[in-house]
């Protein structure tokens, strides 16, 4: 249905091939994401989950295929233009300006927003993450891991993205911080922002995601609701790289487990 906009996918990745230099990590990957979805990418190490996020954000070399977003192909665009098209990215590990204050970090993100207002933008993020407000004058590098993760999410949200790419937000965080980060992600998603999440903590990811996509060797080998697959089956995929028989059937018949 071309004229039914609600039915059109927001993100439409077709036959994507990408990697770093001569090294191809994404091989013929297909994935569509509907507006407002919360998709968790899963798969063993080296499956290409992080590379996929980087590729969508224009930070890897694309050797083939297309990345449709809002009806246009963003493959090959610079990160700045992709950001302008409404896609924000929160990479794995610490990705802020460690010697600048929390305020200044948010300002750096505001600069990217046309007609951005530093004060109003900061306040919007401080409403979202009150803990950052308390530490606004501290250098970002002095914040705890969880606080830095929230700062980075805040910086991404400042740019009012309609698609948020977020890579391993829970790595190195305390259980308490992890819960907080995931609560915020759910809130962001409820606010209408589509999310593509890469997460090693499968339990957590399956709790919050509306759909799971499993990658292996640079391809999506299964996608469906979190309820469509058990941890045991996931574990089997990670160990053997093979899709269990039943899950394969689930995909075909589109029926959900239980």
């Amino acid at each position: 249905m071309l004229d039914d906009l609600r039915g059109a996918p927001a993100l439409d990745i077709r036959d994507l091939r990408a990697g770093y230099g001569p090294l191809e990590i994404i091989r013929s990957l297909n994935l569509t994401v509907e507006p407002g979805e919360f998709v968790a990418l899963m798969g063993p190490n080296g499956a290409g989950k992080s590379t996929l996020l980087k590729t969508i954000f224009g930070m890897a070399t694309i050797t083939g295929g297309s990345i449709g977003w809002d009806g246009r192909n963003v493959a090959g665009m610079t990160p700045r233009r992709i950001l302008g098209a409404g896609i924000a990215y929160v990479p794995q590990g610490r990705c802020n300006f460690p010697l600048m204050s929390v305020d200044e970090n948010l300002d750096m993100a505001s600069y990217a927003v046309p007609k951005g207002n530093l004060k109003a933008d900061r306040d919007r993020i401080y409403d979202l993450f009150p803990v950052l407000h308390e530490r606004r004058r501290q250098p970002a590098g002095n914040l705890s891991g969880g606080e830095q993760q929230m700062l980075e999410m805040g910086m991404a949200m400042l740019m009012r993205p309609r698609l948020l790419l977020i890579d391993e937000p829970s790595v190195g965080l305390s259980p308490q911080s992890i819960q907080k980060v995931f609560d915020e992600l759910v809130a962001i998603n409820r606010g209408g922002c589509t999310i593509l999440l890469v997460e090693q903590n499968t339990r957590k990811a399956m709790q919050v995601a509306s759909r799971v996509a499993i990658l292996r060797l640079g391809e999506v080998i299964w996608t469906g609701p979190p309820a469509g697959i058990t941890f045991e089956e996931l574990g089997a995929i990670f160990m053997t790289g093979e899709l269990p028989q039943r899950a394969r059937k689930t995909e075909d018949s589109d029926e959900t487990r239980l």
Binding site: M59, P79, C95, F97, M155, A156
Partner: peptide, 9 residues
């Protein structure tokens, strides 16, 4: 942080 610069445009 040059990567963070790319991320915030």
């Amino acid at each position: 942080n040059i990567e963070a610069c790319k991320v915030v445009g």
